[in-house]
Each structure stands twice: as structure tokens, then as C-alpha cells.
């Protein structure tokens, strides 16, 4: 027996497991296209809602900062900058998710999938560290200027802020790592294995 003996053999009945006549075939296709169109529209809608939400969010903080004066206002400005950078970063992630290109050769598709699913690539650290630093600076200055009204030495609230901030970042990183490990680690391993089978890793 040769490999060629299996050319053009369809080893199963059909996608729905039943023999379809022409009419049901057309109906199936119409309903599939309707569903696909609906999904397209839903995805677009979700993106618009997200944009509106982000703009409103920044607007509220900008409004709050307008009620403040001098250094306090600058501190709010830094915090808003942090939010704006974070939102840009989230947008870039969202755009990337929608841009999985299924038309690439399999080995390139797998290599890109591996990159996409890895936990915190160097580029993610490069992008997130300045955002974290901006949040830290903004928050730190707000704490300092808030307490300056009530006490001369603001060291204790500042230390508390630093401790809370570091704890929040650590817990955030740890929990997202755990989530990644639970959902993606085995997938990354699987992709790596496939890539090796393609002689790419």
C-alpha cells in the first residue's frame, strides 16, 4: 500500500455528520455568514465602548486636577499621564490580539504564537516599567502634597504609600503570573514542541 492510495479520500461524512441536500447547504451557509457578520459587528462595538470608557475615565481625572492648584495639580498631571500611557498600552495589546494572522506559513504562525503567549517578554517590561514609574511618581507626589497640609514631616505616609504600591505591583505581577501558568504555560510548551517538530527551535 502507498501513501498515494489515500489521495482525495474524505474519511468522514461531512461537517455536520449528515448528508446535506443543496437547500440545507445554502441555508447553513446563510446562517454561518449571518453569525460571522454579527460577530464582526459585536467586536467593533466592544472596541467603541472601550474607547468611550477610557476617554470618560481620563476626562474625570483631568476634571479633578482642574480643582487643584500649583504642585498638587502637577502631581495629578503625572498621574493622568500614567493612566494615558496605560491606556495606550492596553490598546496596543487589544490591537495585537485582533491581528493574529492565520495566512502566514505554519512555522512563522507558530513562532509568533509563541511570542504572543509568553509571559512578560522584554518588550513588555520596557513598556510597563515607565508606566509603573509614572504612576508611582504621581501617587507619591499626591500623597506628599496631601499630607503637607497636616504635618511637617511626611515621611511616614510616604513610606506607607511606597509599601502599598510595591505590594500592589507584586501581588498584581504574581497573580497574573499564576493566571498565565494556569492558562497559558502548557500552551506555550505545546507550541514550543510543535516548533521543534518543524525544526524551528
Amino acid at each position: 500500500m502507498e501513501l498515494d492510495d489515500f489521495k482525495h479520500i474524505t474519511p468522514a461524512e461531512g461537517p455536520t455528520g449528515k448528508a446535506l441536500n443543496e437547500q440545507t447547504k445554502t441555508d447553513d451557509m446563510n446562517s454561518l455568514i449571518d453569525q460571522l457578520k454579527e460577530t464582526d459587528a459585536r467586536d467593533r462595538k466592544a472596541m467603541y465602548y472601550l474607547i468611550i470608557m477610557f476617554v470618560v475615565f481620563i476626562g474625570i481625572y483631568t476634571g479633578t486636577s482642574m480643582t487643584k492648584h500649583g504642585d498638587f495639580r502637577s502631581a495629578y498631571g503625572v498621574l493622568i499621564l500614567g493612566f494615558a500611557l496605560a491606556l495606550l498600552y492596553i490598546f496596543s495589546l487589544l490591537l495585537k490580539i485582533g491581528k493574529v494572522d492565520y495566512t502566514e506559513p505554519a512555522s512563522i504562525f507558530l513562532r509568533k504564537a509563541l511570542k504572543r503567549h509568553k509571559f512578560m517578554k522584554p518588550i513588555d517590561w520596557i513598556l510597563t516599567l515607565p508606566i509603573i514609574a509614572t504612576f508611582f511618581t504621581g501617587g507619591f507626589l499626591i500623597v506628599r502634597y496631601s499630607f503637607m497640609k497636616y504635618m511637617e514631616n511626611t515621611l511616614i505616609p510616604e513610606i506607607i504609600f511606597i509599601a502599598v504600591f510595591v505590594a500592589a505591583i507584586s501581588v498584581g505581577t504574581w497573580s497574573s503570573y499564576r493566571q498565565w501558568k494556569e492558562k497559558k504555560a502548557s500552551l506555550v510548551e505545546e507550541i514550543r514542541k510543535k516548533l521543534m517538530e518543524f525544526g524551528q527551535e
Partner: peptide
């Protein structure tokens, strides 16, 4: 290509 990647 699309089919292969969907299967992969």
C-alpha cells in the same frame, strides 16, 4: 495556510 493554522 489558513486551514493548517486553524488546525494547529
Amino acid at each position: 495556510r489558513v486551514t493548517m493554522n486553524a488546525c494547529l
